[in-house]
């Protein structure tokens, strides 16, 4: 059996909140194969966002091992870690766009860090913005766009580097239902093209669309369900 794309073994993470330690993750074992579509569900504080951050190399486990395509993430030095992050596309609930930059500049930002020439960056950014249906909003700033449009800019930014892994943290949490459906359909389209898609959500409707559903409670994985559609 080939090695899974993502492999977690005994991953734990403890935060100090108001001086008291909080066990956000408690011995998580999880394998995710390339090309999977996984929903991470659970109540608020169940550890699903922490798990997503560790998967995206934004955070490190206190204990346990996390291997990304065979590489032990804990062993990476800062520059290699930055390179690893570029292989991941992130979509956040709060969009996290830079308010001073235009849509096209926001989308081009990850390419800048991977050393792509500016002219190429812009061309690629325009291309993905067209793809998410914002070809007529290139020079708008985030403040001039609706929530759904902002999230589509964020999706464009996540996919501009052609990542093999898309991580989405409540991608529809701040959107009305119609915009939410548009965004999730866009993400699924990318999944169908071969991307591995992991979505954190507490929306049962959204979770039901995934092929596999991982339920969490108190930092532990309490259930894994394969789903047919």
């Amino acid at each position: 059996m080939p090695e899974p794309l993502l492999a977690l073994r005994g991953v734990s993470k403890v935060y100090a909140r108001d001086g008291a330690p909080v066990r956000a993750l408690d011995g998580v074992d999880l394998d995710i194969a390339a090309g999977e579509y996984v929903a991470l569900t659970g109540a608020s504080g169940s550890g699903k966002s922490t798990l997503l951050h560790i998967l995206g190399c934004l955070d490190r486990p206190d204990q346990g091992s996390y291997r990304f395509a065979g590489t032990e993430i804990a062993s990476l030095r800062p520059d290699a870690l930055a390179r690893q992050r570029r292989a991941v596309g992130f979509v956040f609930q709060a969009f996290h766009l830079l308010p001073r930059l235009s849509a096209v500049d926001n989308v081009a930002l990850p390419l800048r860090y991977s050393g792509v020439a500016p002219a190429v960056r812009r061309a690629r950014a325009v291309e993905v913005l067209r793809r998410v249906g914002l070809g007529d909003r290139l020079e708008h700033r985030p403040g001039e766009l609706s929530g759904g449009q902002q999230q589509r800019v964020a999706v464009a930014r996540a996919l501009v580097g052609a990542p093999s892994l898309l991580l989405c943290d409540e991608p529809t949490g701040n959107l009305d239902s119609r915009s939410g459906v548009e965004v999730i359909e866009l993400l699924e389209e990318l999944w169908r093209e071969g991307c591995t898609l992991i979505v954190v959500t507490h929306d049962p409707g959204l979770a039901a669309r995934a092929r596999r559903r991982v339920s969490m409670r108190d930092g532990r994985v309490v259930g894994v369900a394969e789903q047919e559609r």
Binding site: D79, A82, F90
Partner: peptide, 14 residues
């Protein structure tokens, strides 16, 4: 927040 985002998007600390 902005710096965190840039790092998340793959910026090197340097």
């Amino acid at each position: 927040r902005e710096i965190g985002l840039r790092l998340a998007l793959g910026a090197r600390p340097l």
